[in-house]
């Protein structure tokens, strides 16, 4: 590897496949959580996993450019180990239709904000917990915060401003027979990418 490319992290094909499988298990756990809370069957997606340059984030994310009416919540998560600290960001984005479905399926939650933050926890928290088991980084999540659609970019960019690379995991959930369309987006920084690479190599050995 040349010195010029050392700032650019990428996984080998084997590492990528291994991470995909780890993510599949996490996707399944989120599906199960949603299915139990909402009482409907969740169609499980194949997660999209990419490592991108931090400056490419805005243009890489389709979710940012889609039409208005998106409800979103973000959840910062942090790992503190050996005196160092790394943070990542989870985002949950819901379409207008998703919110109607959630209102109908969780009538006990009276207001829109509560529906969004509860769904953020069900999706982001469950996924992070499942991934943390493998990562060994012990991510601790902060409480979810509501994000206005027009602030999504700003919120992301403020978190990733000091990163070189971002591991982006995008998972798009649907509920069977309903219009619900929810995106879970996880952003991990350089140190987490490197830590996962080591872990993947152990699993592949």
């Amino acid at each position: 590897m040349s010195a010029a490319s050392s700032d650019s992290l990428q996984y080998s094909e084997d590492q990528r496949d291994c991470l995909q499988e780890i993510c599949n298990v996490a996707v399944g756990q989120v599906g199960d959580t949603l299915a139990r809370k909402l009482g409907v069957f969740v169609t499980l997606p194949i997660p999209a996993i990419n490592i991108i340059k931090a400056e490419q984030l805005s243009q890489s994310l389709k979710s940012f450019s889609s039409s208005a009416g998106i409800y979103a919540a973000s959840q910062l998560f942090t790992s503190r180990q050996d005196g160092s600290e790394l943070s990542g960001l989870a985002l949950v984005m819901l379409s207008e239709d998703s919110l109607s479905d959630l209102k109908e399926l969780m009538p006990e939650l009276a207001n829109t904000d509560a529906l969004i933050t509860e769904t953020c926890c069900n999706m982001a928290q469950t996924c992070l917990d499942a991934l943390s088991e493998h990562w060994g980084l012990g991510f601790q999540s902060e409480a979810p915060k509501l994000v206005r659609h027009e602030s999504l970019k700003v919120v992301c960019e403020s978190v990733v401003s000091s990163w070189k690379n971002i591991l982006v995991v995008e998972i798009n959930y649907h509920l069977e027979g309903r219009a619900f369309n929810g995106d879970l987006l996880l952003l991990f920084p350089d140190q987490a990418i490197e830590a996962m690479a080591q872990r993947l190599d152990e699993l592949l050995a």
């Binding site: 599949n24 996707v27 399944g28 599906g31 199960d32 069957f41």
Partner: peptide, 9 residues
């Protein structure tokens, strides 16, 4: 053999 652990699955 699946990660889809929903009872319905």
């Amino acid at each position: 053999i699946s990660a889809d652990i929903q009872p319905e699955a």
